[in-house]
Amino acid sequence: MEIVAWSDSLSLGISKVDEQHKRLIQMMEELDEAIRKNQGADAVEDVLTNLFNYAQAHFAVEEELFRKHKYPEMALHELEHQRFIAKAFAFKERLGSNKPGLALELLNFLSSWVLNHIELTDKRYAKYLRDCGVS
């Protein structure tokens, strides 16, 4: 599977969130490069740690917008974030086992999750927030 690439079709029309999504995708590209160039477990883990930390910061920004504007599906969206974090950290722990193909499996999970999350879940809140004046 190809990792997700940024395109205008992923834009939510909320500049801060779009910029963060672009950065997340860029970090996945960095992870893909570290894996494909066999840069070693430490390099992959460093990129992954940065990506997960950035994802958590991004989720916090979204969740603050939800609270500020009383987004009605806030609890459900936050639950998706929590599930992602739990699954991502479970993958990270398994990376230490050096199981062949696990890093690519993780990258596929990340790419698929980010694409589906933006296309399905984030686009639902984007209209609501834009209607509240967020841009």
Rank of each mutant, 00 (worst) to 15 (best):
A103D: 10
V114P: 01
K92R: 14
A126F: 00
G96C: 02
P100L: 09
K87F: 06
L115G: 15
A75R: 10
Y71S: 01
L106G: 04
L129P: 02
L65D: 00
L95K: 02
K68F: 08
R130G: 05
H69C: 00
A103S: 14
L129Q: 03
P100S: 10
R94G: 11
L65Q: 01
L110H: 12
A126C: 01
F89D: 13
K68G: 03
L104E: 15
Q82P: 00
K87L: 13
H81D: 05
Y71G: 02
K70E: 15
K127Q: 09
Y128V: 02
E73H: 08
V114E: 02
L107T: 03
Y128Q: 00
E62D: 06
L120G: 13
E105W: 08
R94Y: 00
D131S: 12
W113G: 00
E62C: 08
N116V: 00
V114G: 01
N98Y: 10
V114A: 07
A103M: 08
V114F: 12
H77D: 00
F84L: 05
E63S: 04
F66R: 05
L107R: 12
R83F: 09
T121Q: 03
S112Y: 11
K99S: 09
L102C: 02
L65N: 02
K127L: 13
E105H: 05
K92P: 07
S111K: 01
T121M: 11
E64Q: 13
F89W: 13
F84D: 07
E73V: 09
L106R: 07
T121W: 03
S111D: 07
E119Y: 06
R83Y: 05
W113I: 04
K92H: 04
G101I: 02
L129S: 01
R67S: 09
S111C: 12
N116Q: 12
Q82T: 14
L79A: 12
L102G: 08
K123G: 03
A90R: 15
R130V: 12
Q82S: 10
R130Q: 10
E93W: 06
E80Q: 15
L95R: 05
D122R: 11
S97F: 07
R83E: 09
E105R: 11
F84R: 04
S112V: 11
F66N: 05
E73S: 14
R83L: 13
G101Q: 06
E73N: 13
N116C: 07
F91D: 04
Y125A: 01
E119R: 09
R130H: 03
Y125C: 08
L102K: 01
Q82C: 02
R67W: 08
F84I: 06
E63F: 03
K99M: 05
L115Y: 10
Q82E: 14
M74E: 13
